[in-house]
Amino acid sequence: MINKLWIFFIVVGSLYLIFNGKADVLNSQILSSGKTTLDLIIQIFPLLAIWLGIMNIAKQSGLLEKASNFISPFLSKIFPEIPKGHESLGLISSNIIANLFGLGNAATPFGLKAMESLQKLNKEKETASRSMITFLVINTCGVTLVPTTIISLRMMHDSTDPTSIVVPCIIVSFVSLIIGLIIDRLFARRYK
């Protein structure tokens, strides 16, 4: 799937640029993507290391397991394949909570650890498991209580009420999350 999409992006984009005589744009896109990626990684890396450190303390002290016991009745409905008390439940809930508070940077390390942990439960290591896809859908729905980037962008553009978008945002993202989870469940049944 990703393979086909990738071919499509590159072939269609390149041909369009070439036929419009904009080979220079194509050149700079090809040459700059490495730097764009490296900049992104450099942005992610320091925060990732800090959160992995903090998370390791939470894991070794048993705090993560405790937190997962607390919310697992709720999460086990969404993730029926994860055994009760498994560490991934604690990581998933940490990711969801960090996202809720608009801490995308803190949410990513939790999400990555959660995926690694789900990978341990996964039987076919190169194929996404049902739980992984459910977790992914939760993340793509971008459920958040404070869309910080957008509020600050609105402030930058002199909005009279920058936070007026918060409540509709919460409603839209929560309802789309529920729809997303239903879609995910329907797909999971078909793929069984």
Binding site: M1, I2, L5, T108, G111, L112, M115, E116, Q119, E124, K125, E126, T127, A128, M132, I133, L136, V137, N139, T140, C141, V172, S173, V175, S176, L177, I179, G180, I183, D184, F187, A188, R190, Y191
Partner: peptide, 27 residues
Amino acid sequence: ITLYFGTIGIKKIKYALWAGLLADLAT
């Protein structure tokens, strides 16, 4: 999808992209 699945080495993403994009359409 790229970040999470790429980092843990998932190659077959099954219906993940469709589910994600349909949720986006719902948004």
